[in-house]
């Protein structure tokens, strides 16, 4: 199946809910889908189009929304970057960890760094940030400044920095 056929199949299956599809170059396809069908769409890609590999999930802060990009691969060759987005004020979306096992880790990473809640996730807990990291500071959001992150980091280690300063 080539890049064009992949897009056509997706459009035939999901119609209007698939948009902005493009083939940027050979083996690189980008497509957007409505957040409501992301699970269904990825399930279809995996089950019917042979996309058995999830390379990673990219989370991206774009103003009022958080964009999620699922990078899936067919035959280790064609990479489809399937995009969707959620509102920043209520960032939640269905977990795909039952469709792609490795998504469990990638979703935890996005949860950690951008604060997106993945519903029905088996264990949506911190993966990268310390356990005591504040709930409302999401390092990869644009409003999180380097100064905020630095000052929060310097609080870790029970005053270890003060000890070094002595």
């Amino acid at each position: 199946m080539n890049e064009d056929e992949i897009i056509t199949s997706l459009k035939n299956r999901f119609g209007e809910r698939v948009h902005n599809s493009k083939i940027a170059k050979p083996r690189r396809v980008y497509v957007e889908v409505d957040a409501s069908i992301i699970r269904e769409a990825l399930s279809y890609m995996r089950g019917s189009l042979g996309f058995d590999h999830l390379s990673t999930i990219t989370g991206l802060d774009s103003e009022e929304r958080i964009e999620l990009i699922y990078h899936i691969v067919c035959g280790n060759s064609i990479v489809v970057s399937m995009k969707t987005n959620v509102l920043k004020t209520n960032p939640k979306i269905g977990s795909i960890s039952d469709i792609y096992v490795t998504a469990e880790l990638y979703e935890r990473e996005v949860y950690d760094l951008l604060g997106v809640r993945f519903e029905e996730h088996p264990n949506l807990s911190r993966l990268i940030l310390p356990e005591d990291w504040p709930e409302n500071l999401h390092p990869l959001r644009k409003e999180a400044t380097l100064e905020q992150i630095k000052s929060r980091l310097s609080m870790n280690g029970d005053g270890i920095n003060e000890r070094f300063n002595d």
């Binding site: 950690d112 911190r126 993966l127 990268i128 940030l129 310390p130 390092p139 992150i149």
Partner: peptide
């Protein structure tokens, strides 16, 4: 559990 030396 990962992230102990996550450097941002």
């Amino acid at each position: 559990r990962i992230g102990y030396v996550h450097r941002g």
